[in-house]
């Protein structure tokens, strides 16, 4: 576990060693603002909740999270530092977990920095803070899901642009699997249980159910299993690299 911590610290520090961290956080805060106030019509809705704020997170993350995850492994492969990482006495799973947790913590930090909007809504009205906390937890889990997918895809290539584009596509499929867009492709021919299975993979539906203020165990299990699965894929992909 101490190796996970070593990797975590190094990785998290590397975000802040370049302007990347600041660019990302500013872009994230700006985008959440635009979506909430202009597209979400936060003020005119006249309700004291953060519905307008959270409802766009799945779409926002679709592009912003792959921007965090794309470098996780692709950069190490490109610059040759992967050779250092894999020849130090660190188990591969520890590197995978440490890197993922660092990226997740960074995404969490960006999310926490949206707190002024929470304060505003409390000053303006009397929102249900339980729902807001649940929504923050759901948003954080959602970010973790996207990140785990993006990290594994980053391990497949040494090209960060490819990692970004492929991650956006795969994340989109996972996010939208409950929408007609994806379901229509399946519903014509597949039996009902297949349709239900595909629909149950949807980030959107799990996130929306948490957003109602109830953190259901099923939703937690869904995100935990999803993250676990993709981290496992990530480990296998790195292990596979050794075979050349």
């Amino acid at each position: 576990m101490s190796q996970v911590w070593n990797i975590f610290k190094r990785e998290l520090a590397s975000y802040f060693a370049t302007p990347l961290a600041f660019v990302f956080i500013v872009a994230f805060l700006f985008a959440t603002g635009v979506f909430t106030f202009y597209i979400g019509d936060f003020f005119r809705a006249g309700r004291a909740d953060l519905q307008a704020f959270f409802m766009f997170h799945p779409w926002l993350y679709l592009f912003l999270i792959p921007a965090i995850s794309m470098r996780l492994w692709a950069e190490e492969r490109k610059s040759g530092t992967l050779e250092i990482l894999l020849t130090l006495p660190i188990p591969i799973w520890a590197s995978v977990l440490g890197k993922f947790l660092a990226a997740w913590a960074f995404a969490g930090l960006a999310l926490i920095l949206t707190f002024p909007i929470w304060i505003s809504v409390n000053l303006l009205g009397d929102p249900d803070n339980g729902v807001i906390i649940a929504s923050y937890v759901g948003s954080f889990l959602l970010a973790g899901g996207y990140l785990a997918i993006g990290a594994a895809i980053s391990a497949m290539t040494s090209n960060q642009v490819i990692a970004f584009v492929v991650s956006v596509v795969v994340c989109f499929l996972f996010m939208a699997s409950g929408l007609p867009l994806v379901l229509d492709a399946v519903s014509g021919w597949a039996p009902q249980f297949v349709i239900n299975t595909v629909a149950s993979f949807s980030f959107l539906s799990h996130f929306q159910s948490i957003q109602k203020g109830v953190i259901d165990l099923r939703d937690l299990v869904f995100f935990a299993a999803l993250i676990g699965f993709w981290l496992f894929v990530n480990t296998v992909l790195i292990e596979q690299r050794k075979a050349g």
Binding site: K9, R10, S79, T81, E83, I84, T87, L88, P89
Partner: peptide
């Protein structure tokens, strides 16, 4: 390793401390 790869954004001091911690 060939070409002496290292984490470019780190300083030698940070890098060596990272390696020492891992060791």
């Amino acid at each position: 390793a060939e070409g002496a790869p290292a984490y470019g954004e780190m300083t030698p001091h940070q890098f060596l401390n990272f390696v020492a911690a891992v060791r």
